[in-house]
Simulated scan of single mutants.
Amino acid sequence: MGGIGGCIALIVVGAILTFASDWQMDGVNLDVVGLIMMGAGLLGLGVYASVMRRRRAAALPIVDETRDRT
């Protein structure tokens, strides 16, 4: 999964596992799995925002103000 949609999907599925499910599995704590998924989604959003900020800054045109416009 990549991008904003994948990160939001991780957060949503993690929240459902943690707060809205009452499933029981032997040897697996679904609350912890949900928290890990939400954390990974938040971390992914942070990384994605950082990368997009750098790309946007690199794509800005460089304006030379010292050039004579006559």
Rank of each mutant, 00 (worst) to 15 (best):
A9C: 02
G46R: 06
A49P: 02
D26Y: 13
L10I: 00
M1G: 08
A59I: 12
V12F: 02
R69W: 11
T18H: 05
L42P: 02
D64G: 05
V51Q: 15
V47A: 04
D64L: 06
R56L: 15
L42Y: 07
M37A: 15
C7L: 00
M52P: 01
D26L: 14
R69A: 12
Y48P: 01
G5W: 03
A9M: 06
S50F: 06
E65S: 11
M37W: 12
G46E: 11
R54L: 10
I36H: 12
G14I: 08
G41D: 10
L43D: 00
R55P: 03
R69V: 09
L17C: 00
W23K: 08
G5M: 02
M37C: 13
V28W: 15
I62E: 05
A57M: 09
G5R: 02
L45T: 11
R56W: 07
I62Q: 07
R55Q: 14
L30G: 04
V13D: 02
G46A: 08
N29H: 05
D26Q: 14
D26P: 14
G14M: 09
G3H: 14
T70G: 07
N29M: 06
A9Q: 00
D31Q: 10
G5V: 05
M25N: 01
G14H: 14
C7M: 08
D68W: 10
I16C: 04
R53T: 05
M37D: 04
L30V: 01
M37Q: 08
G41I: 10
A40R: 01
A9S: 06
L43Y: 12
